[in-house]
Every structure is written in structure tokens, then in C-alpha cells.
């Protein structure tokens, strides 16, 4: 089992425990095999993480394919865009980190 964030859910994954919304209402039961509309339902209800049965490849494993050169390329590509932001504020640091990773992934997908 693995707790994963909903942006990493894929069709066919199986829930290892039930998922409730913030009011405690059960949205999906344990054992449910995810279809696209299930994922949409969780997203619309503001659910962030779910418990998935079986092995799930981690972000870290996927990110191992990223080389320092690729990271630098994306940091450079975003340099102008991030010129004016407060780089010492944690929120902007996090925004920048995720934006750089997103840019790397876009370029990797473009190369496939």
C-alpha cells in the first residue's frame, strides 16, 4: 500500500481504504478500482491524498531520470519569468521548484 497524492492517480489503481470528503461523507469505498470519473470526483471534492493497494513507483524513482543539466536548462528557461518575485519567501521558492520540475517533465515528454 502507498499513500499518494491525487495528481499521481492512474486509471486501474485500487483503493486500499475508503476515501471521505472533509465532512466525513464516504466518496469511494475501499477496493474500488479507479476510473477516470472517480479521479475527477476526488479532485472536485478537494481530496489531496488516497491510499492505494500494491506497489506504486515513487516520485523519487521517476525523478532519478532527471539530470543536473536538464534541471539547469529549465532553471535558465524560467529565469526571466521569475525576475521580479520575492525569492526569499518560502511560498515563492516552492512555486519555483515545482515550476522548474514541471518544465523538466514537459521537455522529457516532448522528447519521447
Amino acid at each position: 500500500m502507498a499513500i499518494i497524492s491525487i495528481d499521481r492517480l492512474q486509471i486501474g489503481m485500487v483503493l486500499d481504504s475508503e476515501v471521505c470528503d472533509r465532512t466525513g461523507r464516504v466518496l469511494l469505498k475501499s477496493g474500488c478500482e479507479l476510473q477516470e470519473w472517480h479521479i475527477g470526483k476526488l479532485s472536485s471534492a478537494g481530496v489531496e491524498e488516497v491510499d492505494i493497494a500494491g506497489e506504486v513507483s515513487s516520485d523519487e524513482q521517476n525523478d532519478q531520470k532527471i539530470t543536473p543539466e536538464m534541471m539547469q536548462q529549465s532553471i535558465d528557461a524560467l529565469e526571466t519569468a521569475f525576475t521580479l518575485v520575492d525569492k526569499n519567501w518560502d511560498v515563492m521558492k516552492e512555486l519555483h521548484r515545482v515550476a522548474v520540475l514541471s518544465d523538466v517533465h514537459k521537455k522529457m515528454e516532448g522528447d519521447c
Binding site: S5, E49, V85, L95
Partner: peptide, 24 residues
């Protein structure tokens, strides 16, 4: 340029840093 986000606005939403990356 990415706009300068105002700290007050961010705090108004009461979100954590951990939530931010997932939300993105």
C-alpha cells in the same frame, strides 16, 4: 514576469506549503 504574490492573499487562503505543490 510571474506577478509578485502578496503574502496577505496567500495567508488568507490558509494553505500549507505541502498543499501548494500538490495543488500545482
Amino acid at each position: 514576469y510571474v506577478p509578485r504574490m502578496q503574502k496577505d492573499c496567500w495567508h488568507k487562503l490558509n494553505l500549507s506549503l505541502n498543499q501548494l505543490s500538490k495543488l500545482m
